[in-house]
Design a protein around this nucleic acid. Sequence first.
DNA 1: CCATATAGTTCGCCTCTCGAATTAAATTCA
DNA 2: TGAATTTAATTCGAGAGGCGAACTATATGG
Lengths: 400, 400
Amino acid sequence: MRKIDLTNFQVATSETARDINRRVMLNLIRQHQPISRADLARHSRLQRSTVSVIAEQLIKERWVTEGATGHVPRGRRPRFLHLNKERIGIIGVAIRPTQTTWGVADLNAHFLVQESLPTAKDPEQFIATLCMRLSNLMKAHPEISYEGIGVSLPGRVDLATQKLVFAPNLGWRDIDLITPLEQATGLSVELENAANACALAEVWFGHHAIGNLVAVTVSEGIGAGIMVNGQLVRGSSGAAGEFGHVTIVEGGTQCKCGNHGCWEMYASNSAAVHFYAQATAPQRNGKPNDARPAPTFDDVLRLAEQGAPKAIEALQQMAHYIGVGLALLVTGLAPDVIVIVGEVTRAWAQVGPIIEQIIKERSFTYASPRIVPTDPASQPRLRGTIALVLQKHFGAPTVA
Amino acid sequence: MRKIDLTNFQVATSETARDINRRVMLNLIRQHQPISRADLARHSRLQRSTVSVIAEQLIKERWVTEGATGHVPRGRRPRFLHLNKERIGIIGVAIRPTQTTWGVADLNAHFLVQESLPTAKDPEQFIATLCMRLSNLMKAHPEISYEGIGVSLPGRVDLATQKLVFAPNLGWRDIDLITPLEQATGLSVELENAANACALAEVWFGHHAIGNLVAVTVSEGIGAGIMVNGQLVRGSSGAAGEFGHVTIVEGGTQCKCGNHGCWEMYASNSAAVHFYAQATAPQRNGKPNDARPAPTFDDVLRLAEQGAPKAIEALQQMAHYIGVGLALLVTGLAPDVIVIVGEVTRAWAQVGPIIEQIIKERSFTYASPRIVPTDPASQPRLRGTIALVLQKHFGAPTVA
DNA sequence: CCATATAGTTCGCCTCTCGAATTAAATTCA
DNA sequence: TGAATTTAATTCGAGAGGCGAACTATATGG
């Protein structure tokens, strides 16, 4: 049960019921497609007459199309409905520290086109280039009608102003991405933190029917996208989810954020690289400056795959600390599922059992969550941007 | 935006709009009472005709009464509406380790009667006694029409079965409280964890218009009631909020839960008592067995008020660790407000600044939350039980 | 060919909001 | 004092939308 926010509420009009039932229909079609009107009525407990009217409306608006006729043992054959893949396109943009990827997806989050560009240090110029590329992409596919743009990035978005507040790994600060993108494309733009986008992707495109989920992105830093009661936790002005900067080692290594012993100092890719460097050069006691090129996390992963004991050990240390942080989330939030996003999932056979073990040891809960690694090929950050736009039409109506 | 849960959703009927607007009206009346129909229309942006019909309905159902006529500079005088304090009673029961308190409150959460009883070790017998007392209370006030019963207790309630799973400080396990209470009173019973009840109390009766809040109960243990987007965080099967058992001291003191270094081992009342005992008997090195009666937390508080340095020091240590745990919540959830419930608020002048300082030092957030001590006289655990029942009629409608 | 079963449509009824018109009751000003 | 003005509240017809019974369309099987 939610309390009605009297500073920002919505009363019902005569169209409210239709809005609600329309959204339910869209979701049922999305989940069960292809599906007949009669089955929709059965699933929704709406009258068949009501379903017919709504279906007609959705077909007219081209959200839905009527496909093949189905087959039943007796009686008139059903006419199947499904989401209109042809018509509607959603543009998703995933900005990451090294590379920015974007593409056009249909309502089933299948990408028709995909392009990318190295992310630049200078935001203004980069955004200008991105706008041009997006505008060209749209011109190249004029047959698609575009519903909106979703953007994910490794930083905080202010809830009120919808501006990027700070993206440490990009070095961007106080950037208005929405205005230039909307001007260049004429579409409405939704901005979201990458970990939140991953949580959305999992909830909307994953195969769990889940309302309580945590998505943890492990890369240079650590981010947490938290889903509670089917909604993202944004906190005061969008600052929630910074579990990467929770202290897990008292008086530990200093973090860029100024504090000591932050989770991401021990459980991120950089942490594993650091562990590995320490193990391979113990005589230098943690000073990584060296003439040889510093190993990357990719190197550590590859070495571990090849069976290098010190690389494996570094990953094991990383896994241990991932578990320590997750145990905290499990104890406090009791999610049904935790999804792990990041290169580290490539070594899941090594790190997974350790993480599960630590969580089991350290968390206090009556029901332990499933820990699920995501396939990097599924591009969770990019898929989440599609969910960002999809939400506006498929999400629960805002009422009261 | 929420995702529609297709395993458990609700379509709209012709009455849905009325249900929504009715709830909005009830809330507007609650907040602005006394208020005229015309002002309700202005606040809600509903037509005056619609407001009149809904008001008439609410009056007929005796949720609302028409009070004095108001005064405007020109024109016809408004007829003020307010919640019907006379008619409706809600029974609240707060079960605490030593004492169980209950009473009857009106729609404004003002208690008309209040009684209490020492909590017994044996749940079956205790519940039977409680049932009898409640039933007698209702018979003694037959003029009140009772809307329901809310119960708060220091333990976990399973979301699905609505049974008490485990209450460590009561020693109760797998207890069905709902059935006996419903049978004895004929009313529907809502069960909730005490920290969650405190969060509800603050959101419904506090003077913040707030959707993101954490209520932390500090007593023998520590509990956290977390409110996100105006809803309680219950997590998988109701297990969320156990932040008291998050590890904050690596390899620290063992907790009853089996883990080491749990927050509540360092920041609860018992922890302060332990700190004090250690300081006053340093030669015994933490073995509290002694011929003298062991000091209680109340003793420590009193000694600190009298200026005893070792008692003050114990509270300061406690405050330090409260801050450490809160910093974690602030970093991860970014609530607008944190309310502290417990005897420790009596020494807020001593502990408050320390807590705030630690949070400021250790948390990573763009907007720092207000830390608010609650007045123990306001009985947050008991008031929360009223909110539990109030929610059913004043909460946002469940739709889609 | 007809009974039966299933899909989908049509239509009158009911609930609910909207908005204009109307009624009610106060103040101000001529 | 009485007309004009202002604000509150009600009345009533129109339109949106869901309900449910009746009806049409189309299949299978005896």
